[in-house]
Design a protein around this nucleic acid. Structure first.
Length: 465
RNA sequence: GCUCCCUUCGUCUAGCGGUCUAGGACGCCGCCCUCUCAAGGCGGAAACACGAGUUCGAGUCUCGUAGGGAGCGCCA
């Protein structure tokens, strides 16, 4: 049977990084097994669902390349179908109308808790005979009173639930709208989902859903419950831990391939391998290598993975990303060296594309001010002679490219009897404003002849002033 | 409270009864390379939650304990 998986978020906010991992695993599992993956928007809670959230989910998944094999399915467009199934369950005696009021239910729960039991519905309307005109009834599913429901979870192993622990859950509200545990079953059944891959906060819902499948005469799918992702401090991952919205990572200059790599590796492993291409993930991913315990999100490691991907991604693919970051900063990519050169020069010293853009700033626009620490250390009176000599030597270089420029700088050092560092550093600070940059020859090429000479004057001015 | 799940370096993990004086990676520290910063190379500190079993032998199996998490809605 062909594998069919789905990702089923509810559109109540931005796309959370934990949700993305769930989507990724469902997507990878389908791709790995040559199956299909679908997106289903669970928007039955009309109070909390928003169009912005739907857009955020779709944009986020799109950015990451987690594309579905069909247009998204919206639950709000399937109310007729849910109604139909509810009627079927009612007719077959698998469900019944409940006339209990909220007050009655609250009291019931309070009593159960007082007795030290799990708060649950006691089934008082199950036998019928409690119809009343002043209460719009809900519809409850008749959970089997005895027996066990077994979940052979693909990640957690066998989990056995006593049906007696489960109560009769509401499947239709008093206004007739269906509830979560019910719509999930109808949709997974209709979509012919073979593998439900979701967060392990859903394990306790699973026996209820399996019972509904059975009542409908349908075969339940296989289940795989993924452990949660915690923050670095071990608590639930939240905004306190930094960005949890995937789209923010795009802004921060992370590569989709790196996000996917990091997230895949968070809770899954393939021996000692850390860096994976998307193709490798598809080829190697499977649920039997998924860890059973919760993992902590580590922004530092994400940064490293991103850097590794920047190192491995072809320059041509990085160029538009750098352009985007430069433009976001109000810089004109045309007013400086070709972006290819900048990427080549900075790729191994940038952990994000945002950082690369920061470092590239001085190649596309005059820098505001010298880094004070760097200037104090290198733009000292003793550097005056060095910069004068450099200016003359560089101005005389006919071919403004790396090798001749390096030779010119080395020549100045030799003539003045100084170590290269004593010459290159003042020059570096003079032309970039910073103490760190690519190799001096490369840096000079990036800055360009005109700006280099002008900036040496600027530095000399500072020393004099 | 009840039900379910989880527990190897700070973090992500390898380990599927003996090859474990527990391996890799991030981070941290040191060294090398070096015009700076990186990248890269080399080295170091750092973990089997605890207690009983089973077994010739347990990080690996079983049961407890402790700790953590999830769920217990006319939310999803």
């Amino acid at each position: 049977m062909k594998v069919r998986t789905r990702f089923a978020p509810s559109p109540t906010g931005y796309l959370h990084i934990g949700s993305v991992r769930t989507a990724l695993y469902a997507w990878l599992y389908a791709r790995h097994h040559g199956g299909e993956y679908f997106l289903r928007i669970e928007d039955t809670d009309r109070e909390r669902s928003t169009q912005e959230a739907v857009d955020a989910i779709i944009h986020g998944l799109d950015w990451l390349g987690l594309t579905a094999d069909a247009p998204p399915i919206f639950q709000t467009q399937r109310f007729d179908r849910y109604r139909e199934i509810i009627d079927r369950l009612l007719a077959s005696g698998h469900a019944y109308r409940c006339y209990c009021t909220r007050e009655e239910l609250d009291a019931m729960r309070a009593e159960a808790q007082a007795r030290g039991e799990k708060p649950r519905y006691d089934g008082r309307c199950r036998a019928g005979g409690r119809e009343r005109a002043d209460v719009a009834p809900t519809v409850r599913f008749k959970t089997p009173l005895e027996g066990e429901t077994v979940v052979d979870d693909l990640v957690k192993g066998r989990i056995v639930f006593d049906n007696a622990e489960l109560d009769d859950l509401v499947i239709a509200r008093s206004d007739g709208t269906p509830t979560y545990n019910f719509t999930v079953v109808v949709d997974d059944m209709d979509m012919r989902i073979t593998h439900v891959i979701r967060g392990d906060d859903h394990v306790n819902n699973t026996p209820r859903q399996i019972n509904i499948f059975r009542a409908l005469g349908a075969e339940p799918p296989a289940y795989a419950h993924l452990p949660m992702i915690h923050g670095p401090d071990g608590t639930k991952l939240s905004k306190r831990h930094g960005a949890v919205n995937v789209l923010e990572y795009r802004q921060m200059g992370y590569l989709p391939s790196a996000m996917l790599n990091y997230l895949a590796r968070l809770g899954w492993s393939h021996g000692d391998q850390e860096i994976f291409t998307l193709d490798e993930l598809i080829r190697l991913f499977d649920l039997d290598r998924v860890s059973r315990s919760a993992a902590s999100f580590d922004p530092m490691k994400l940064l490293w993975v991103n850097q590794q991907h920047i190192l491995r991604t072809p320059t041509a693919e990085l160029v538009p990303l750098l352009a985007e970051q430069l433009e976001r900063r109000g810089l004109d990519p045309a007013d400086g060296p070709p972006l290819e050169r900048t990427v080549e020069a900075l790729r191994e010293r940038s952990q994000t594309m945002a950082e690369m853009a920061e470092r590239a700033h001085c190649y596309y626009q005059e820098f505001e001010a010298f880094d004070e620490k760097a200037a104090e250390k290198h733009l000292v009176p003793a550097a005056r002679e060095v910069l004068e000599a450099l200016k003359a030597a560089l101005a005389a270089v006919p071919d403004w490219s790396e090798k001749p420029l390096e030779d010119a700088v080395a020549g100045v050092a030799e003539r003045l009897g100084l170590k290269l560092g004593k010459v290159a550093q003042p020059l570096r600070v003079a032309v970039t404003g910073q103490a760190a940059s690519p190799g001096i020859g490369t840096t000079l090429v990036l800055v360009g002849r005109e700006r280099t000479l002008a900036r040496i004057d600027r530095a000399l001015g500072r020393i004099a002033g």
